[in-house]
């Protein structure tokens, strides 16, 4: 497992990193926790000529309250998200989701920015990011912009972040305790065969699903069926049946498309039931 030859640079500011990306173009790849990039390089599925390590840029790892929202630095590790008291008190879904990612080693190294930009169709965060309706800040040669969660995931391993941009911050709203993430693991990798994140708020229910399709999505059919209704077990069961409506489920040796679709429905129902129990 030996990667191809590459150069390594370690900028100390976001601006410097942006300049390096601009300079090297498609030859460059940002390195955050390295837990998606390095395995891909070792398998020689990724062969960047220049690796730009953003691990030493100060002030990219934090979790703090910002107005009604909680702001999370892109370099914040899964372990820090999982353990954050601020998140657990104010917006617990992300902390719960982080606890489902990989193992202790992975959580200690992997970062929220890296996970979102890598956009693995079976990653855990995307479901919750969608259900929370988060905002993602990116910095590039054209300045800073904010991407809404629904616009963020474009396709398999593809996001709205351009190759010369860096994710700097993720903002999630404060929520009640009525949130939940329920996941079925792909037995070998531990990633999600189907993961459902739900946020039950004063203005309705949002549901994000990961693992099922080429990209994570909002389960619009479920949300609509629940809108403005009292969340009875019966209604939850009926609405959850819409969890995979209109998507084209993935199939592989670990689960057929129909099983993934089925798990999306079961886990949506279970996540809704759990969130209701937490009220």
């Amino acid at each position: 497992m030996y990667p191809a030859n590459f150069d390594y640079v370690r900028p100390s500011t976001v601006e410097e990193a942006v300049r390096l990306l601009a300079k090297h173009g498609d030859d460059a790849k940002l390195l955050a926790g390295g837990h998606s990039l390095i395995p891909a390089m070792k398998l020689r599925l990724a062969r960047p000529k220049v690796v730009v390590d953003i691990g030493r840029i100060a002030h990219l790892s934090y979790i703090r309250e910002a107005g009604g929202a909680i702001a999370i630095g892109a370099m914040t590790t899964h372990a820090d998200v999982q353990a954050s008291k601020t998140l657990r008190d104010k917006s617990p879904l992300l902390a719960e989701t982080a606890s489902h990612i990989g193992d202790v080693q992975v959580r200690n190294k992997g970062t929220i920015g890296g996970s979102l930009v890598h956009a693995d169709p079976a990653a855990d965060y995307p479901a919750s990011i969608l259900a929370l309706d988060a905002e993602i800040d990116v910095v590039g040669p054209r300045g800073t912009r904010t991407i809404k969660a629904v616009d963020f995931f474009v396709d398999l391993l593809q996001t709205a972040v351009a190759a010369d941009e860096i994710v700097t911050e993720i903002r999630v709203p404060a929520t009640a305790k009525t949130v939940a993430y329920v996941k079925t693991e792909q037995k070998a990798s531990g990633f999600a065969l189907a993961g459902a994140a739900v946020v039950i708020g004063p203005n309705g229910v949002r549901v994000g699903i990961t693992g099922v399709a080429a990209k994570a999505y909002r389960a619009a059919g479920v949300e609509k069926a629940l809108a403005g209704q009292k969340l009875t077990p019966d209604l939850i069961a009926r609405a959850s049946a819409q969890a995979s409506a209109g998507v084209d489920p993935l199939g592989d040796i670990h689960a057929s498309p129909s099983f993934r679709a089925h798990l999306a429905q079961v886990n949506t129902r279970r996540a809704l039931e759990q969130a209701v129990r937490r009220s």
Partner: peptide
């Protein structure tokens, strides 16, 4: 098909 720990459980 099961040549890595990603696929062999």
């Amino acid at each position: 098909v099961t040549g890595e720990f990603m696929d062999y459980a």
